[in-house]
Write a protein that binds this DNA or RNA. Structure first.
Length: 284
DNA sequence: CGGTTACCCTGGATGC
DNA sequence: TGCATCCAGGGTAACC
């Protein structure tokens, strides 16, 4: 489920609970989620070690352990999330972190079991794995980097924005929001964007993601929650996602919810008036 | 190689 | 009520 703002909210929530704390033990309750490591490896290495940092890399949560105990990487994917309070369902708990000197527990839950738990021996190994499938972070990429990456593909702008190898962090919700904010039709070709449009898109990405982090992410149904079990507030203030058939906040015409093959088959929300296929592009 | 599709998994909502 | 179908915010292996 979580995209960049939700994962950022997770690590911000986890830090006060974990950083500087010694782990009494960790338990991998569902080894199915493990990738490239064993349950024994993770549990034995993390036992009795201090958590040095909790960072976000794209949509990954990276926990660095002290000395040479390596790094635990968790990818929440669609339905993964952390809890500092007891989670609503015991049967969805996939991993637990038990803190020394207290009875405190951090839970990792994942309804659909699409998430991943990995362990890397050192930072270089984790970085290499990340770089293999990721481009620059969406909050760090420059306009010129973005322009260069968009120029290289004939795909639609939406699937390109969601491609973690192009830039890391954007998923279906924030792709729709940023394209609306930038006035770009989702079926435009990435390479067709003019320089002024790339600038607008880059600015929209920064603004939307910052607003979503401020709101602690996007919650709906029984999905994403903060580590305290609270709902993120972004979908109460957004423009497009989940608003098909309702009036566009820009022009009042109806928002279209479409499912188009070239848009990865995921629901796509847009306003054909504010996001004209022809665009308003020009070269600077 | 670039781009598209099928599929991983589970549970809630919808429809008959 | 019961059962079938569809849908979901991610990611990647396999395919054309």
């Amino acid at each position: 489920m979580p995209e960049l703002p939700e994962v950022e909210t997770m690590v911000r929530g986890l830090r006060p609970a974990l950083v500087g704390q010694r782990l009494k033990a960790v338990r991998v309750l569902d080894p199915f989620l493990l990738q490239g490591c064993t349950k024994k490896q993770v549990e034995a290495t993390a036992k009795k070690t201090v958590v040095v940092s909790v960072e976000r890399r794209g949509k990954w949560v990276v926990m660095t352990l002290e000395d040479s105990h390596g790094l635990i990487v968790i990818q929440p994917r669609m339905t993964g999330g952390f809890w500092l309070v007891p989670p609503p369902r015991d049967d969805h708990v996939r991993m637990t972190f038990h803190l020394e000197g207290s009875e405190k527990i951090v839970w990792f839950c994942d309804t659909r079991r699409l998430g991943k738990i990995a362990w890397f021996a050192d930072l270089a190994a984790a970085e290499e794995a990340f770089a293999h499938s990721h481009g620059p972070d969406a909050l760090a990429i420059t306009v010129s980097e973005l322009a260069a990456r968009l120029r290289k593909t004939n795909r639609g702008i939406k699937p390109t924005l969601m491609d973690q190898k192009v830039l890391a962090g954007i998923g279906n919700i924030y792709a729709d929001e940023t394209l609306f904010r930038a006035g770009l039709h989702p079926e435009r070709t990435a390479a067709s964007l003019k320089s002024n449009e790339v600038i607008k898109l880059h600015a929209a990405i920064q603004t939307i993601l910052a607003e979503a982090i401020e709101a602690e992410g996007s919650s709906f149904d029984a999905g994403y929650r903060t580590v305290l079990g609270l709902e993120g507030g972004f979908l109460a203030q957004n423009a497009m996602y989940g608003r098909g058939g309702k009036p566009c906040p820009g022009c009042g015409n109806l928002i279209i919810k479409a499912k188009i093959a070239c848009l990865i088959g995921r629901p796509t929300h847009y306003c054909p008036t504010c996001q004209p296929l022809g665009g308003h592009g020009f070269e600077l």
